[in-house]
Computed example of a mutant assay.
Amino acid sequence: MSASPQRTFAEFFAGIGLMRLGLERAGWKIAYANDICPGKFEMYRANFEDADDHFVVEDIHDVLAADVPTVLLATASFPCNDLSLAGARAGLKGSQSSAFYGFARILREMRCRRPRFILVENVSGLLSSNDGKDFREVMLTLNKLGYSVDPFIIDASHFVPQSRQRLFIVGELRSDSALKAEDRAEAAEFYQSEIRPRALAEFVFNNPDIDWRLRELPKLPQSLRRLISILEDLPHNRSEWWNEKRTAYLLNQMSQRHRILVDKMIDAAGWSFGTVFRRVRAGRSMAELRVDGIAGCLRTPRGGSGRQILVKAGFGEFHARLLTPKECARLMGANDFTISGSLNQALFGFGDAVCVPVIHWIAQHYLEARIQESRELYADGDKRAYG
């Protein structure tokens, strides 16, 4: 789809640019990108030839609002380190996730140039961080900036063979279509749906002072793709496959239940595949196996625990290796991404990114729908909204 000049966006916490890929597939045009990490910028530049024209490598707290162009949409995939269930959960006051306030400051300082839409992405753990206080703080901060808010949760497994549940928040500058007090439900179940599970529905119900704008969205697709569809066919003599000593150590880290599953895979007269994450359970490093055809959530390889391991078994054999960068790209729906840098750098870039087809779906079924619904309202020349 060709890009409409009206559908421009600024991408904060841009990383390697997968938010951009998803939006461009829906006809949007990049106007500005920012991230603090030089390594991610190098990956971005290897894939996007125009990177030097609009990408600013800088701490978001130092970005000047005056340097951000007027756009229709601003996106923010701010760091999840302090919000994730896998982390220490320092919350919005943590050194990483507090970067959200840098994004909010830029919006505030843009004043009448604020984008009509914002799209915020983070882990679903944001909903429960600090007993819900952090999520409420994010919602109220966006309200104070003039945005009605609509949160929903999407698992990337609806599009790709990866379990990756993420919380999205669409904010839109207030209009008469925001949820009014007289329209509020009498029970939390009214808000519950496929994309707003019970915990999120209850939060909406229990926080009526927040300016919500909840939109009914179409049913998510059901992907039939499985792990095997994204794998590279690497011969067993390639260096990526682990040696016998290393694979034996991995097997010894498995629980009895998972070892029984592996033994059945080994004894089978055909190849089967699974993924493994190492996790600390009761002070012991354990190798936890998944064999349902869906990869676990890609994570950044901090400390090694985020490295997802592929296992292949059958015909009396057992093999193991890390997922390759190309396989990680495919799990994120970025099949044609030009990959550069070291293995760790690639794993870090994709593990910290958004799933491309999920963003494409949101752009199509939410953003585009809202633009079309209000096209006549803005046709008279609201330059703030259309840039």
Rank of each mutant, 00 (worst) to 15 (best):
W28G: 00
A185R: 05
S163D: 02
V311Q: 04
R20K: 12
G270T: 11
I210V: 15
L310Q: 02
R384F: 09
M43Y: 08
P5E: 00
E327Y: 02
I359Y: 01
L72C: 10
D382K: 11
D211H: 11
A74I: 12
R302V: 12
R116S: 05
I362L: 07
F159T: 02
K180H: 15
L234E: 06
L92A: 05
G316E: 04
K180E: 15
G94Y: 07
A46H: 12
L214D: 01
I230W: 06
V68T: 02
A86K: 14
V56F: 11
Y147F: 14
N130V: 06
P208F: 02
G381S: 08
Y101R: 11
M139A: 13
L85H: 13
S229L: 07
A199L: 14
R307M: 13
A104Q: 10
A76M: 09
G303D: 15
A14L: 03
I339A: 01
F152A: 04
L231D: 04
A156L: 10
D134N: 02
L347V: 05
A320E: 09
D380Y: 14
R116P: 04
D131R: 11
I260E: 15
P357H: 06
G27F: 01
H360K: 07
R384P: 06
S157T: 08
I118V: 15
P221H: 04
G304A: 12
G349W: 01
Q6N: 09
K40E: 02
A320N: 10
K180D: 12
S4L: 09
I60A: 02
T75L: 03
A3K: 08
G381H: 06
P5C: 01
K264S: 14
E202N: 10
R302F: 01
E49S: 13
R196Y: 09
Y32M: 01
L343F: 15
E368W: 12
A188W: 15
V123T: 13
G274I: 06
P69V: 02
G306K: 12
L18S: 01
G132N: 03
K326I: 13
Y378S: 08
P161V: 06
A26G: 03
I210S: 04
N122T: 03
M332C: 10
L323S: 02
D131K: 11
G91N: 06
Q372F: 11
F315I: 06
L21C: 00
L145E: 07
D53M: 09
G351W: 05
R307P: 04
I339H: 04
P357A: 04
S272L: 06
I210T: 08
E373D: 11
R375N: 09
P115F: 01
S285D: 15
I210A: 03
R20V: 00
R113Q: 09
V160S: 02
L127Q: 03
F135Y: 09
S95E: 15
M254K: 04
A248W: 14
E24M: 00
L126S: 05
A329Y: 03
L167M: 14
